[in-house]
Design a protein around this nucleic acid. Structure first.
Lengths: 211, 211
DNA sequence: CAAATTTTTGACCGATTGGACAAACGTTAG
DNA sequence: CTAACGTTTGTCCAATCGGTCAAAAATTTG
């Protein structure tokens, strides 16, 4: 009884199957990229036939778009939590730690974004120049405040944020390389603790205010 | 007059055309990934017909493989130059600078590798666990020596190398995002100088030996 | 129950893919 | 010139792609 103007009302089955498909699509898209993934692959991973999948998402792009929109909020949550009220060094430390935990616990989400950005972000460019830029600019302002107050060393807040993104996401996006280089011993489950220890030292020492 | 056992002897035309194809393939592969790229795209970018291209490279994978093998050396050259004899801080500074210059001057090469690693490195895994691991282990030893000599702060040399890779390559692989966030003013040509200044501060301060 | 609706499937379609192939064309050596 | 060789192209192919459609099956509703 959809009049066409209101938000789609979904049945229980539709809810469940759509979740199933999105979960499968996350797996497939994150390892093959958008163009490298096929509807058949996603359908098989979701345990259903291709026409059945297309009953829930009419086009391949719709799946990807839905995934992206849902994930962006999750992905930016740690930065949103970066707060003006706490101690700067403590805030930065927990931001780095949270980002690294996300790389460990949600590597597929990280790779999905990486794939998209790598290929020129054809489908999420507006979000980058809009929502993302706004958020980063705001947080850069917070960091600048800390610098003016002499709480942390003076540097470029934007590039500071970039470097935190780069170093933490590296452990999700380049996981294969990290493990290959570290080898079976150092590359085991402990690698995230090692990374956390290193990054904390690097950033906290590197940002200590000059006396 | 190829006897079949010796290295392929190539005519002048073969040399030139193969270079043309590899240049075109670098452009296409680095922006679409392997599976997302088509032989037709590469052929068109190289200004020739598809059967003509297949005369020089019999399979799509051969082009990719040749590209990878050629580029790995270039890509690792800065790390190879990291030398035991110079001043540690100076050596690290120029390593970071060289890596950042490569991100600026050869972004396609960086994206090609990123694409490959992101998708599980199906075609270059042996190189990672072999040649790459050997080189990194060796340089980690050099860095460890500096630490023992009290020239730089004690940390994990492997993760130090990872973080330098991550932060510098970020400016090639995530260039679209970097420019979108920085905006037209800060994201102009000067962004690499800003990045260089920031990274130098971060790493050199973060690695200062404790007194 | 039965009717209406939602879900699932097999068969199919045109477009695109990587690649094969023989014929045509160009070049060079004798 | 001519024969041999290297290069280029048009045509074709089987496989795979994203997506359609009608009909069957399952579920919900009255």
């Amino acid at each position: 009884m959809n009049t066409g103007t209101e938000a789609p009302r979904r049945t229980r089955i539709q809810q469940e199957k759509r979740e199933l498909i999105l979960e499968a699509a996350l797996e497939v898209f994150s390892t093959n990229g958008f163009r490298g993934s096929t509807i058949d692959q996603i359908a098989e991973a979701a345990g259903m036939s291709k026409p059945n999948l297309l009953y829930y998402f009419r086009r391949k792009e719709d799946i990807h778009e839905t995934l992206m929109q849902r994930l962006l909020d999750t992905w930016l949550a740690p930065l949103r939590e970066l707060d003006d009220i706490g101690d700067p060094m403590t805030e930065l430390r927990s931001y780095i730690r949270r980002k690294l935990e996300m790389a460990r616990d949600f590597p597929r989400e990280s790779r999905l974004f990486a794939n998209e950005i790598l290929q020129g972000a054809p489908r999420i460019m507006p979000l980058l120049a809009g929502e993302l830029k706004t958020l980063v600019d705001e947080k850069a302002g917070v960091i600048k405040g800390w610098m003016r107050a002499g709480k942390i060393a003076r540097t470029d807040p934007w590039h500071l944020i970039f470097s935190i993104w780069a170093t933490t996401q590296h452990y999700a996006d380049f996981d294969v390389q990290v493990r290959a280089v570290l080898g079976p011993n150092r590359g085991g489950d402990g690698r995230f603790e090692d990374a956390a220890r290193f990054l904390e030292q690097l950033f906290l020492e590197g940002l200590k205010p000059k006396a």
